[in-house]
Amino acid sequence: MLTQLLRLTAYAAVLIFIAGIAYRWRKWSSMPTHLRWELYPVPHEPPVKVRYGGGYLEEELWWSKERTASVIGELKELLSEMLFIKRIYNNNKRLWALTYPFHLGIYLILVWFLLILLGAVTEAYAHILVPSSNAWSIFLYYTTAVVGVAGALLAVAGGIGLLIRRLTSPVLRDYTTIPDYFNLLIVLLALTTGLASWFNDPFFNYARAFALSLVNPLVNPPPLNAVILIHVTVLQLLVAYIPFSKITHFIGKYFTYHRVLWDDEPGSSGLNRRVGELMQLKMPWNAPHIKPNESWEDNAEVITNEG
């Protein structure tokens, strides 16, 4: 019965996750156009400039030349930051030694989810059992096991290390708030109960069977023991909680880089139209040099020789 319930809540958790992430994304992408505040190096500049961090303002008559912004350059920087966490590696190797295994472990677990899902789909719709003598099935069976275990071990080791780091450094302890600890703890709880489940299910057959019941509602979920039940519950809570927490920093990071630090787009008719609308907003500030109850545009008007 409990597993039936968990099947339903699994759908709910995923729906909350998707809706929550979509909401966050929309919140940030619908923010007003801001003034330019870029920071070099900007990776979408031509490679020859990226090498030393230069930008298009280095060219005399830059405004008469065609500006190219390379998506590949941004992608390269994005991937090297995502896959290797370059900025921490360059600045703080000791922190990197903890945060890198933690994040790498989580990436592997995301791959594991995909492999489990593929296994379930293979069983449900290709009608190939996992494991069986089929080559694809064997591949799925073993890579799932290896990726899952490696991911969990790396993430647990890194996560515990990060927690200890926060608890032992007086400075970090001072900066860390209750939600910060909670985020780390709930992730660690999901990871450690996952590891405990793995002892009961070394080749993730229960996981795959549960996934099968999710992709094919006609199949009943497998009976799960207490440890796995706890793990699945914690995991679902985590999934539903993520959109409301700072764990969504992957979204924040997209916006800080792509929409702020690398946003060197010079004014254009579209941009200026949006800014023009914002300039009509009433400036609410109260200092003596602000014209009260007037728009930004009126406030920007020059007040030479006044007073």
């Binding site: 916006f255 907003l281 400036m283 609410p284 500030w285």
Partner: peptide
């Protein structure tokens, strides 16, 4: 707020 600081609100 948007009215007070659209210029740097997102960052």
């Amino acid at each position: 707020s948007r009215e007070g600081n659209w210029t740097f609100l997102q960052p």
